[in-house]
């Protein structure tokens, strides 16, 4: 997707949020939304929005849907696992901070990856430097980079790679 379409994506994102907040598409509401979203999109055309870098191909849209499904599944799993740990009298934690390698380059894709990792079973993004993402792991299955990357990053990266440039 070419760079020139980025402001349009920002405009549409803002407009849709505005319309959802208002819950109506009356002419006045729509006009205000178009003017304000347009002004923001022009003034902040260099800034990123959620869809910046999204490819908008059929493959990317399918990957987005699969990603949301996978994310929700992981979120529920994360909570059940956390509940099991917290309720266990022994408190079976084996924490470690591990380094993982990230192949994604687009900042929005990386944001989504780091956020997803924080919300999924036992992992918390701590720091990112270059291509290395440091993750705190409540029950570490291994401390080397390969194991950590496979266990933590790969599941989400599979989808995000297809979604973003």
């Amino acid at each position: 997707m070419s760079r020139s379409l980025e402001p349009l994506k920002l405009f549409l994102t803002l407009l849709v949020i505005w319309l959802l907040l208002n819950g109506s598409v009356a002419l006045g509401t729509l006009a205000v939304g178009v003017v304000v979203a347009g002004a923001i999109a022009v003034l902040f055309r260099e800034s990123l929005s959620v869809l910046s870098g999204h490819k908008f191909t059929a493959e990317a849209l399918v990957a987005s849907l699969l990603y949301v499904g996978y994310f929700l599944k992981e979120l529920v799993k994360a909570n059940l696992q956390m509940a099991a740990i917290v309720l266990s009298p022994r408190l079976p934690v084996e924490p470690a901070i591990v380094a993982t390698r990230v192949r994604l380059t687009h900042p929005v894709a990386r944001l989504l990856l780091a956020n997803s990792i924080t919300l999924t079973p036992g992992t918390l993004s701590v720091e990112m430097k270059g291509d290395t993402l440091y993750v705190h792991w409540v029950v570490a299955k291994g401390t080397d980079v390969e194991t950590a990357t496979r266990e933590i990053v790969a599941g989400f990266e599979r989808y995000l790679e297809k979604m973003y440039d």
Partner: peptide, 18 residues
């Protein structure tokens, strides 16, 4: 119950989000 700051953040984030 969690033993340190990082584990507490873990427990807090997931449970409060869901």
């Amino acid at each position: 119950r969690m033993p340190d700051t990082y584990n507490r953040i873990q427990a807090g984030t997931k449970a409060t989000t869901l």
